Every structure is written in C-alpha cells, then in structure tokens.
Computed example of a mutant assay.
Amino acid sequence: MISTSAAWLAIFLFAGTMTYAGIKDVATMTISNRLVLALAVSFAVLAPAAGLGVATISSSILIGSGILICTFALFSLGWIGGGDAKLLPVAVLWLGSDLALDFILYTAVIGAALTLALLQFRRMPLPVVLQKKAWSARLHAPETGIPYGAAMAPAALLLLPESHWFPALL
C-alpha cells in the first residue's frame, strides 16, 4: 500500500512542480533553487517508498549527474540559464535513465517551437494591454533569453506515463 500511495504522490508532485516551474519561468525568467532542491529531495524520499529498485534509482542518479555536468558546461558558456541547467537533470532524475534521451529530444523540439514563437512575438509591437504587465514586457524584450522551463514542463508531462513511476502502481 505504501508503494502505491508513494507512487501516486510522486506522480502528482512531479507533474505539479514541473508545471509550476514552466509557468514561473515564463513569468519571471527564473527557476528557483528551492524548487529544484525540493524535487531532488522528494525523489530521494519517494523513489524507495514507491518501490523503485536500487538499480533504477542508481541509474537515474548516474545519468542525472552526467547531465548536470553537461548543463553546467552549457551554462558556463552562456548558452542556457542556471535554472535550466539545474531543472533538466533533476527532471531526468525523476523520469529515469531510460527516458533521458527522449526527454532531451522532446525538450529540444518544444524549445525550438517556443523559440520560433517568441522570435515572432518579439518582432510584433507589444499590445497595449500587455505593456503594463512586467512578465510580458520582459518576455517581449529582444535581449531576454528563452524560458526553457516552459519547454521542459510539457516534455516531462508527455513522458511521465512512460516512466518508472507507473509500473510501481501495478
């Protein structure tokens, strides 16, 4: 019973937190360190409680750590933001090593579509009703980056049903 309850809690916690991170990234262009840390700690607690095996947990940690090294290299080059560099590996931790490449590819495709949409949005004048909103003015500014948390969130939600959390429910 504890494994089923922990798996359901994990699924809803991860889905909700990723959704929040995506929305928050659009609104503020930041992904909180607390949010990333909360996801990491929650995984450490819920994965064993949901009945995930040592091999599954270990491979998720190993792949997530490797991706963290890669994303921090990209961050140091100025190619991605710090929040993105932390959220991507923690999402892989949750989704598992089997879905790591799929998650990166989904994020890249959704991120490319988001980038093209934002580039088009930035070419148009900002509507008056949106000029008074700080988040829309920031998103419209050409010097502002791309909120890739908004690409990671739907990518994670699309892959979550294929993750190791659902077999824990059977």
Rank of each mutant, 00 (worst) to 15 (best):
W8L: 15
L9S: 11
A10G: 14
A10W: 08
I11M: 09
I11N: 04
I11E: 05
L13H: 00
A15S: 14
A15Y: 08
G16P: 06
M18W: 00
Y20M: 09
Y20I: 06
A21G: 05
I23H: 02
D25S: 06
T28F: 00
M29P: 01
M29E: 02
S32N: 10
A38V: 12
V41Y: 08
S42W: 08
V45H: 01
V45Q: 06
P48G: 09
P48Y: 10
P48V: 12
A50M: 09
L52S: 08
G53F: 05
G53V: 07
V54S: 13
A55L: 11
T56D: 12
I57V: 15
S58G: 09
S59E: 13
S60E: 03
I63Y: 09
G64C: 08
G64Y: 03
G66R: 10
I67R: 00
I69T: 13
I69L: 15
C70D: 05
T71M: 14
T71K: 00
F72R: 10
S76K: 14
S76Y: 11
L77N: 05
L77K: 13
G78R: 11
I80V: 15
G81Y: 03
G83W: 03
K86I: 02
L87V: 04
L87P: 02
L87H: 01
L88Y: 00
L88S: 03
V90H: 01
A91D: 07
L93C: 04
L95D: 06
L95Q: 03
L95W: 03
G96Q: 13
S97N: 12
S97W: 15
L99K: 10
L99P: 09
A100H: 09
L101P: 00
L101K: 09
D102A: 15
D102H: 09
D102V: 02
D102M: 10
I104Q: 06
T107R: 00
A108Y: 05
V109W: 08
G111H: 08
G111W: 01
A113F: 13
L116V: 15
A117T: 14
L118V: 11
Q120A: 14
R122W: 10
R122G: 13
R122F: 12
P127A: 07
V129Q: 11
L130F: 11
K133C: 11
R138A: 15
R138H: 12
L139T: 05
H140P: 06
H140S: 04
A141L: 04
A141P: 00
P142W: 07
P142R: 13
P142H: 11
I146R: 05
P147G: 02
G149K: 09
A150D: 04
A150Q: 04
A151D: 08
M152H: 05
A153D: 00
